[in-house]
């Protein structure tokens, strides 16, 4: 545990000592901020137009649900942007150590493979959560100036963190396969994209296969979280995917021992 913590803190230092981290955080904040502004202004405009219309035609105004019409699509949007950004977070985790030869330090100290893999995984996930912080600020504006429901926001973030941990696990695995950060980033992105679009393929395949593909599609499981429903089935799906990614990383790191 102590050693895992040491690895974790070291990884966080790597993140926050590097300019790339701040560029990633800033880019994520700006992009999600722009989308927030667009969603919000179109929501406000729709509500405003409806108010004018109801006054003109003396009809009762429609019900506008901010959770349904703003927060839900915004979480979908955050999930999509995460898909693009997370490979940049995970790319360096192992490949940089392989390139610079510091793996030789990690593998010859009393660190176990789990110490290394878990420390790195949690550090990646922590960084992702830091990245999400600006969006908490955006959404809190809604709570200040309006009265959205709280629990769908909570479940949305839970979904994002679970989705993120699955992507971090997969990205970590890809990073452990190569010493080239670019390859790790592209590979991680490709993997995330495949898991994302695999559901589309379900539309064109037989009934048996389509059920499997639908289940594997990471985004299908996100839907309920965005709507404010925490279903254990989806929680388990993401946890399984994360565990699988960590397990593969573990095997990939251990593989140096049986490649004799």
């Amino acid at each position: 545990m102590r050693k895992t913590l040491a690895v974790y803190q070291k990884e966080l230092k790597h993140f926050f000592y590097s300019p790339i981290a701040y560029i990633v955080i800033a880019a994520f904040a700006v992009i999600t901020g722009i989308f927030f502004y667009l969603y919000l202004s179109s929501f406000v405009e729709a509500a405003f137009m409806d108010m004018i219309r109801s006054q003109q035609f003396r009809t009762p105004p429609q019900k506008f649900n901010i959770n349904l019409q703003l927060i839900r699509p915004y979480f979908w949007n955050l999930a999509l942007i995460s898909l693009f950004v997370l490979p940049l977070v995970t790319m360096r985790l192992f490949s940089e150590e392989k390139r610079s030869g510091t793996v030789e330090l990690l593998y010859t100290t009393p660190l176990t493979t789990s110490n290394i893999v878990l420390g790195k995984f949690v550090a990646g996930l922590t960084f992702y959560m830091v990245m999400l912080l600006p969006t908490v600020f955006y959404l809190s504006l809604l709570f200040i100036y309006g009265n959205p429901e709280f629990w769908p926001v909570f479940s949305g973030y839970l979904g994002l963190v679970l989705l993120g941990s699955a992507f971090v696990g997969g990205g970590l695995f890809i990073s452990s396969l190569t010493e080239n950060q670019i390859i790790a980033a592209i590979g991680g992105f490709g993997l995330a994209l495949v898991l994302w679009v695999i559901g589309w393929a379900a539309n064109f395949s037989g009934p048996g296969l389509s059920a499997v593909l639908n289940y594997l599609s990471v985004i299908n499981h996100f839907e309920d979280f965005a709507q404010g429903v925490i279903d254990s089935q989806h929680v388990i799906f993401y946890l399984l995917l994360t565990t699988f990614g960590i397990y593969l990383t573990y095997r990939s790191v251990e593989s140096i021992k049986w490649r004799a």
Partner: peptide
């Protein structure tokens, strides 16, 4: 104690931080 041919250093850390990390990792 092992010193590989290319010293395994983290260029972004300070000497103090690096040594502290290694000490913790080495129990």
């Amino acid at each position: 104690g092992y010193l590989p041919e290319n010293p395994p250093l983290y260029n972004d850390l300070r000497v103090s931080e690096y040594l502290e990390f290694v000490a913790r990792v080495k129990e």
